[in-house]
Design a protein around this nucleic acid. Sequence first.
DNA 1: CTTTCGATGATCT
DNA 2: GATCATCGAAAGG
Length: 174
Amino acid sequence: MARELVGWTFLVDGVGGALVETEAYAQDDPASHSFGGPTRRNAVMFGPPGHLYVYRSYGIHWCANVVCERPGRGAGVLLRALEPTHGLDRMRLRRSVADDRLLCAGPGRLTQALGLTGEDDGADLSRPPFELRPAPTPAVVERTTRIGISRAIEQPWRYVEAGTSWSSRRRRAA
DNA sequence: CTTTCGATGATCT
DNA sequence: GATCATCGAAAGG
């Protein structure tokens, strides 16, 4: 699913764009919040797929995942970056950056630009204000190791649209 | 250009 | 008390 979602358009109240960078997390994955079973924080990851798991990162930022697979599997896809296409003006209001490339280039930036917070934890992505539209054409996707983790760092579960200039990091592949 | 570091709070040990 | 699925400002080359 992490690879599949690259190229899909994700909108929150009409604000968003095409996903260009995702990461997969599984229950039997020491880097995953679901590793070790359900807790108060990760409860949504063990619920039905197609819902949002939003958590506080480093006490400051919010990060958003799409819950995947069957209920109880504890799997999710971290939304790391998207190419802004809808509601640029509202994104710029939420994020005071000179360069549009920094609007949604990173999981914390993406949630801020789209207005996602802990209140959206558990939200059903099949209902308003959310929209998930399939990629018009299959995206060309590169796979690399994940970013910002210290465990299971060897797993190549980060997916980036080839040639995009909207990802959280310039260049590099694996 | 690259590296370092502080912020800030929930979670885990 | 340490760690953390981060970001951005500051410092260094």
